[in-house]
Design a protein around this nucleic acid. Sequence first.
DNA 1: CGGTACATTGAGAAATTTCAAAGTTGGTGG
DNA 2: CCACCAACTTTGAAATTTCTCAATGTACCG
Lengths: 252, 252
Amino acid sequence: MLQTFVDTPSPLTPDHAPAPATTPPCAICRIRKMACCDGLFDGSPGRSLIKNRTRATAARQNICRAGEPNEGVLVICEGWAVRFIQLPNGKRQILSVVLPGELVSPAAILEKQSAFSVQAVTDVRYRYFTFAEVRAGILDNPALFDTWIRLTAAEHRSADKRLVDLGQRTAQERIAALIVHMMLRCEERGEVRDGEFPFPMSQQQIADFTGLTPVHACRVLSSLRHRAICNIGRGVAKIIDRGELERIGSFK
Amino acid sequence: MLQTFVDTPSPLTPDHAPAPATTPPCAICRIRKMACCDGLFDGSPGRSLIKNRTRATAARQNICRAGEPNEGVLVICEGWAVRFIQLPNGKRQILSVVLPGELVSPAAILEKQSAFSVQAVTDVRYRYFTFAEVRAGILDNPALFDTWIRLTAAEHRSADKRLVDLGQRTAQERIAALIVHMMLRCEERGEVRDGEFPFPMSQQQIADFTGLTPVHACRVLSSLRHRAICNIGRGVAKIIDRGELERIGSFK
DNA sequence: CGGTACATTGAGAAATTTCAAAGTTGGTGG
DNA sequence: CCACCAACTTTGAAATTTCTCAATGTACCG
């Protein structure tokens, strides 16, 4: 797995080759300045990230499963991951998409047992912080406390928005909203060029996120493509008519 | 049940009409021992609830609206309330049902501007704590910190469950899940007798919670009634076949 | 009483799912 | 380099779920 990650960067990994896991990756982390881990931990030498090894999981593999004891607080260093809940009948709901530099779930930071699973969308590099580190960091440092409050509140607002999405909006609106949302997040990271950005989610994953069947997700994507609004496929999203896409995807 | 409201004026009352309550309400609060406010604040005399007035809002009126500056941290003292988001097109999604003794949204505890609205389902009595009180309380007292963490994590797990509900389950399953969920919460409060408990939500509210139309919610409720599973109406839920209801409502 | 909000019912339309089959893609081993 | 395999995507047709519109019935309140 690790070998896969180091030797065969997927088409979606940045031009700069990913660091081998033995190099302190945070030192060269492209998004370190915007990453939660930077604000949360790099300041205190004793708790610096650098001494923690990263791990890797190949695309489409699970990083952790609901019900397993948590190893600590999970942060994605590189690649896309999704947080999801699997039902006994085989259906699953993707709860959120996690990008590099983000905590997988700020609100679940002290949960000893996870209520959700996490899957790698692309090849992913990630690391854990121990509960003790995180708890002490937050209680020691009021600024960290506020940062963490802000992250938790943001995650919560985002969950509320998703509820509105799933409860009140059509298939097309949900898919457009997902594309717009990912576009904005990629834009912040400087990953959008000529209206194109990495979009590694499969149609099955898009369906699991939006609460649709893969077949219907495919039809909606075809329709968006056919109407020259955007073209999603092969790991890349190309936005053609941004105004129209945002109009469809925004709350009405 | 809410005799104190008889003397509050008609439904045309301004939303923030204060309750006439001269009695310190927490002293007689039936659910005080299980309420978040008891654990969070009653211990410290300087911040005791007792000196804060409660306010009242009549059934079907809004307690606060999204976008308005928050007055503080909202706790429901008596009655049912719902947290919701209203879309410009008139649709709305109910995010959660809040019962007496509960914080309206633990994760939003320090948000100066609310992202959601709150509506009274029944006549409701409630109060605010100031941000300063809450923040100081949490930072001063590690036990409170942990309590609050737990509340936030629970709210978050609940939001995730609702996402699964809205994304993956049928109308009948969602409605059954709502009924079972409220039954369990009422059971904890000792409000279930002979399979009956208060259920003041209108069909419109049930629909807004489950992401259905009121007409379809009505059909599902009729079906449950017709099949002798449960009978929802006139503010009361009567559970007839609990096993079957739980089977329908639980994750499959 | 009379009105208003809420609940129920029917019929047809629209959105989404299901099932099934065929086309594509990318990776693997010969 | 090619053939093959597995996973993913696309398309069609029919079934199902849910919505919309419209009309009627019912409870509660002043």
